[in-house]
Amino acid sequence: MTRLLLVIAGGLIGAPLRYIADRAVQARHDSLFPWGTFSVNVVGSLILGFLVGASSALPHDVQLLVGTGFCGALTTYSTFSYETIRLYEDRARFLAVANVTASIVAGLGSVFLGAAVSQAIWS
């Protein structure tokens, strides 16, 4: 039960932070490319990569609160997919393909980077 509450607490913070960050990024970039969602997904992947790399050093409760709860809610697959389909339907097909490619490449790169950093710190 305590574990579920930790996940809930993380989700309670992560989801509105995605909205606030998305809004802040969009207000600065007047482009069709969904930079807001792209940014939160990359940052969330970086943090989760760091946590996973430090899994032996950090308590499981931190993983649940920050990893499963916060990073899970900060990042989103539904918005990412919906945006991609909307770009595709609006004939911005290059941007749709670019969004998928860039999100996956940058998201994966962030996970590897985050894990490498935490392993360098704790090993």
Binding site: G11, G14, A15, R18, Y19, N41, G44, S45, I47, L48, G49, V52, T68, C71, G72, A73, L74, T75, T76, Y77, S78, T79, F80, S103, I104, G107, L108, S110, V111, F112, A115
Partner: peptide
């Protein structure tokens, strides 16, 4: 949309799953 589905789906776990 932003809350339930955004919190339910996850990009970070997807990326970490691949890395693992």
């Amino acid at each position: 949309g932003t809350g339930v589905l955004g919190g339910f789906t996850t990009f970070s776990t997807y990326a970490v799953d691949i890395q693992q």
